[in-house]
Simulated scan of single mutants.
Amino acid sequence: MPVPQSDLDPAIAARLRRTADGLVAAVVREQSTGDVLMLAWMDDEALHRTLTTGRATYWSRSRQEYWVKGETSGHHQLVRGVAVDCDGDALLVTVEQVGAACHTGAHTCFFTELPVQGVKEDA
Score class of each variant (00 low, 15 high):
71 E>I: 00
97 Q>K: 05
27 V>W: 06
65 E>M: 12
10 P>C: 06
26 A>R: 03
10 P>Y: 13
72 T>C: 05
91 L>T: 04
43 D>Q: 07
18 R>Y: 00
64 Q>P: 08
8 L>R: 00
114 L>A: 06
42 M>V: 03
8 L>N: 06
77 Q>M: 15
68 V>H: 11
71 E>F: 09
62 S>I: 01
59 W>H: 01
6 S>P: 07
25 A>L: 15
90 A>Q: 12
26 A>D: 02
40 A>L: 08
110 F>M: 07
102 C>I: 03
47 L>I: 06
59 W>E: 02
39 L>V: 05
21 D>C: 06
64 Q>I: 09
68 V>F: 09
115 P>L: 01
121 E>T: 15
3 V>S: 10
26 A>Y: 02
13 A>G: 02
81 G>E: 14
12 I>H: 03
6 S>V: 03
53 T>I: 03
81 G>N: 15
77 Q>F: 11
97 Q>D: 06
48 H>T: 03
12 I>T: 12
79 V>N: 04
110 F>H: 03
59 W>A: 09
12 I>C: 05
23 L>T: 01
6 S>N: 05
80 R>H: 13
109 C>Q: 10
82 V>Y: 01
19 T>A: 07
20 A>E: 14
36 V>G: 02
68 V>S: 13
115 P>R: 01
100 A>C: 11
57 T>H: 01
10 P>N: 05
16 L>Q: 00
15 R>Y: 08
27 V>G: 00
95 V>P: 04
73 S>Y: 01
101 A>V: 03
39 L>H: 00
9 D>A: 08
80 R>I: 10
16 L>Y: 02
41 W>A: 06
13 A>F: 09
30 E>G: 12
18 R>H: 09
95 V>E: 00
86 C>P: 05
11 A>M: 11
78 L>N: 11
76 H>G: 01
64 Q>F: 08
119 V>H: 11
78 L>D: 12
5 Q>K: 14
60 S>H: 10
11 A>K: 15
64 Q>R: 14
72 T>H: 02
84 V>I: 12
73 S>E: 05
91 L>R: 00
56 A>W: 08
87 D>C: 10
6 S>Q: 02
43 D>A: 02
52 T>I: 11
1 M>H: 14
44 D>M: 08
23 L>N: 07
3 V>T: 10
22 G>T: 06
39 L>G: 05
52 T>N: 07
90 A>K: 06
64 Q>T: 13
35 D>G: 09
70 G>V: 00
38 M>C: 00
34 G>V: 12
116 V>G: 01
60 S>N: 04
21 D>E: 14
31 Q>E: 15
92 L>T: 14
97 Q>G: 09
96 E>V: 14
27 V>Y: 11
34 G>A: 11
79 V>R: 05
99 G>E: 07
106 A>W: 08
17 R>I: 13
52 T>D: 05
83 A>W: 15
94 T>L: 11
10 P>G: 06
76 H>N: 10
79 V>P: 01
25 A>T: 15
71 E>D: 14
